[in-house]
Simulated scan of single mutants.
Amino acid sequence: MKTYIHEIRENDHVDSSFLVKEKSSGVTRNGNPYLKLKLTDRSGEIEARIWTSVEAFEGSFERDDFVLVKGKAVSFQDRLQINVTHIEKLKEEEIALSDFFPMTEKNIEEMLQSLIEIGQQVRNEHLSQLLRLFWEDTAFVEKFRIAPASTWLHHTCLGGLLEHTLSLTQLVLNNASHYPGLNIDLLITGSILHDLGKVDELSYRRSFGYSDEGRLLGHIVLGIERVEAKIRQLPDFPKDLSMLLKHLLISHHGQYSWGSPKRPMTLEAVMLHYLDDMDAKINGIKQFLRAEVQPGSKWTHYHRAFEQFFYAAEPWDQTEPPENIVKNILEEE
């Protein structure tokens, strides 16, 4: 049974799995070697020391390995650490990634099925075929269903990319009909595919970070590459439709300063950008409010990306949409 770091107390006997975030060696005043570790899981991190059998343990695991640790929690200089008596490397199939990284609170399989079903509403045969190729790509789907949407700003959790994509696509469905003349099929397809390059841009098997191609190319370029590769499998795919779809992807950040190669130049691109930006910002602020409200205060710490503080107001009890509220008021009268 997994024991989380935030549950460990002084004098506890520890027997649980952790991720090795840092590993270094040292020598005591008496000249004896020891290993200094920093262990993590989804609840936090803790220092650890190996004082005995150092030579036997040193080569048995490395930084970024999952390990089984046995030992005792002690207090050293007012900080908790584990004195390790046994440590062994674990295979990835022996652990649950959700024990080590934040996980979406929503059901991944249900979200994926909902997104697929929305995509099935696309009536344009070329866009429908394109989406089908992505859903039939099991390697892509496996990455897409588990990837985070960012390393820290919004939807920073396993399954976060899928959650954000579904949320954006639902926003498109809820708002596009308000503005006659928009290409709904193009918008649905663009919303489903807008961030697909993040499956290659981000690394998330050991910690949330960036791959080499993610740093050098970015998710917009990587996403365009994936879309173009699928379109090549559809020889009758119209060139103009391909251009409009790719424009949605390359312009969805909206501004050059936000990493967008082009600014939105179609109505569909404008809508996609603003809805994407809103979904990311609302989730990111809510994420920040949960983690950064100062004790005894209703204010967060300073958010460096938004360049401001946020006020943590009490949540409203209102759950009904306005039309139902109006309807209820009229019935009472």
Rank of each mutant, 00 (worst) to 15 (best):
L97T: 04
A73H: 12
E142I: 01
L130F: 09
T138E: 14
Q113S: 14
L115A: 06
Q129D: 15
L131A: 14
T156Y: 04
R123V: 00
V67G: 12
K89E: 00
E47Y: 13
V67F: 09
S53G: 02
L131C: 13
E45K: 07
L127N: 10
S150W: 08
G159W: 13
F134E: 06
N124E: 10
E117C: 03
H86L: 07
K72I: 14
T151Q: 02
E94K: 06
K143A: 08
R123F: 00
F100C: 09
Q170R: 15
S75W: 00
L68M: 12
T156W: 02
F100N: 08
S128N: 13
L133Y: 04
R63E: 15
H155Y: 15
L97P: 11
I50H: 07
Q77M: 08
I82D: 05
I118P: 12
V54E: 03
K89D: 00
F61T: 00
K89T: 01
S53F: 14
Q121W: 06
E58Q: 12
R49K: 05
S167R: 14
A48D: 05
I108K: 15
F100K: 03
S60A: 09
E55S: 13
K70R: 13
V69N: 06
K89W: 01
I116K: 13
V84N: 13
Q121Y: 05
K91N: 11
T85H: 05
L131F: 09
G159D: 11
Q120L: 03
E88P: 04
W135S: 12
W51Y: 11
G44E: 09
I146C: 05
E110M: 11
A56R: 15
I116H: 09
E110A: 14
I146R: 14
E136I: 03
R63V: 13
N83V: 11
L168H: 02
T151P: 00
R132M: 10
E47D: 15
V67C: 10
E47I: 09
I82L: 04
T165K: 02
Q77C: 00
E125G: 01
T169D: 08
R49A: 02
L112R: 11
T104M: 09
P102E: 10
G159M: 12
N107I: 06
L168C: 06
Q77I: 01
S114H: 06
E45A: 09
W51N: 11
G119T: 08
G44D: 11
K70W: 01
G119A: 08
K91P: 00
L161T: 02
R145S: 15
E93C: 01
Q77S: 08
Q120D: 11
L80S: 02
Q170Y: 06
